[in-house]
Design a binder for these strands. Structure first.
Lengths: 218, 218
DNA sequence: CCCGAACCGTAACGTACGGTACGGTTTGTG
DNA sequence: CACAAACCGTACCGTACGTTACGGTTCGGG
C-alpha cells in the first residue's frame, strides 16, 4: 500500500496527508500572491520537488483541479435540516444559511479560487468553472431546497418552483457582494455586517414567500 | 494636428477612429479567443504593427485599460428619467432598467471583459477592476438612484437608504446569473427570458418597497 | 517633386515558465 | 545491513510572449 497510489488524474482519488499539505500550499500562494502561482513557487512553498508535483498531479492543470476539489471538500459545513417546522426555526435556518454563504464568498480563499476558475473559463482548457459552480452555487442550492420544501409543506412558505425561490434568496443574500469582491473592491463583510445582511435577506425573502399561518391548512 | 496626439498613457485622451478600430479588434479577440490575447494577435487582427500598438498604448496593460474604457464608454444607454410619477411609469422604468442590465451582463463582450478584469484583480497590477466596477455596478447605481428617490418623493416607494434599496434591486435582478456566466455556465438569457426575469424582479422589488397609494400624503 | 512623419510587416531579443532529467538523500522492508 | 522506492533540490530544455529594432511603404505639406 504505497502512499501515493496512482496519481490524481482521475477525480476519484483521495489525496494523502502530504498531498493535502501541497494543496494547502497552493491555496496559500493563491491567496497571497494571486497570480505568481508558478510550479516553481508551489514546489518551494510546499518544500517538494517539481518532479513530485508532476508525478502526483500530472500537470499544472491537474494540480489546480485537485486544489479546487480539495478546498470544495472542506467547505461542507452547517446543518440545516428541515424538521421542527415552525416559523422561528425556518427563519433561523435561512438566516444561518445566508450568513454561512456570505462568510464563504467573502473569504480570501473563495475569492482567489473563483478568480482562478473564472480565468480558466476564459480559456477553454480544463473545467475549473464547472467544478467551482458544482461545489458552490449548485451545492448550496441542493442543500437549501429541502429546507424550502419543508417550509412549504408546513404551510410556512408559498412558492411554485423551489429552484426559482432559491434563486431569489440567493440574489437577496449575495446582491453585489461577490462581483465587487472579485473585481477587487474592498467591502466591510465583518461578522456583524454579515449577520445584519443575513437577517435582512431572510426578512425580505419571508416577506416575498412567507405565508401567513392564519389558515394552516390542517 | 496629428492623428495620434501624445499616446493614451493618461486617462483623458480620446482615441482616434483608427485607435478605436484597434480597440474593437481587441474586444473581438477577447470574445472569440478568450485568452489568446497576445500583442501579436492584436496586431494581426487590427492590421497594424506592434510598434504602433506600443507607441499608442504604452504597453499591454495600457492597451487593455484603453479597451475597457472604450467599451465602458459605449454602454451608456437607456433613459430612465424620474418624471411622470405614477406607479405604471415607475414599474416600467424599473423593468426596462432590469432588462437592460441583464442584457449587458449576459453579452459575450461583458463576460469577456469582466473575466479579464477579474483576472487582473488577482495580480495587483493595473486597475481594470475598479474601472469595470465604476462603469458597471456603480454607474447603474448612480443612474437608478434618481428613479428610486423620485418614486419615494411621489409616495410610491418606501425605503430608508437609496443605496440599500438599489442593492436589493440589483440582487433580485442579477441573482446568480453573472457568477454562473463568468464561470462558464450556459444560461438561456434570451430576450424573452430576460423580459420575464425583469418583470419578476420588478414585481418582487415593488412587493418589498412599494407603498400602497391609499394615503398619498397630499 | 521631395522630405519627413507615421505606419506596416517581420525579425530579433530576453525572460518567464511549464515540463523533464538527474544526482543525492531519506525511508521503509526483508 | 542491503536494497529499492519515493522524494528533494537543482539544473536544464523548449516555447510562448512581451518588447524592441529595422527596412520598406504610404501620405500630407512645402
Amino acid at each position: 500500500m504505497s502512499a501515493t497510489r496512482k496519481a490524481l488524474d482521475n477525480e476519484a482519488e483521495e489525496p494523502t496527508a502530504r498531498q493535502e499539505a501541497v494543496l494547502d500550499a497552493v491555496l496559500s500562494l493563491m491567496v497571497e500572491e494571486g497570480d505568481q502561482l508558478t510550479m516553481n513557487a508551489v514546489a518551494r512553498r510546499a518544500s517538494c520537488s517539481k518532479e513530485t508535483l508532476y508525478k502526483w498531479f500530472g500537470d499544472r492543470d491537474g494540480l489546480l483541479t485537485a486544489t479546487v476539489r480539495w478546498q470544495a471538500a472542506r467547505v461542507r459545513a452547517g446543518r440545516y435540516d428541515g424538521q421542527n417546522l415552525d416559523v422561528a426555526a425556518l427563519r433561523d435556518s435561512l438566516k444561518d444559511f445566508a450568513a454561512n454563504w456570505l462568510t464563504v464568498i467573502s473569504s480570501p480563499t473563495s475569492i482567489a479560487l473563483n478568480r482562478l476558475a473564472i480565468g480558466h473559463a476564459a480559456s477553454h482548457k480544463s473545467n475549473l468553472g464547472p467544478i467551482v459552480l458544482a461545489n458552490g452555487r449548485f451545492a448550496i442550492g441542493e442543500r437549501l431546497r429541502p429546507v424550502l420544501e419543508a417550509g412549504r409543506e408546513a404551510g410556512l412558505l408559498d412558492f411554485d418552483d423551489p429552484e426559482t425561490a432559491f434563486r431569489t434568496f440567493f440574489g437577496l443574500v449575495g446582491r453585489d457582494v461577490q462581483i465587487r469582491l472579485l473585481l477587487g473592491d474592498t467591502l466591510d463583510m465583518s461578522a456583524a455586517e454579515i449577520e445584519r445582511d443575513a437577517v435582512r435577506a431572510t426578512d425580505q425573502f419571508l416577506a416575498l414567500h412567507g405565508r401567513k399561518p392564519s389558515a394552516p391548512k390542517a
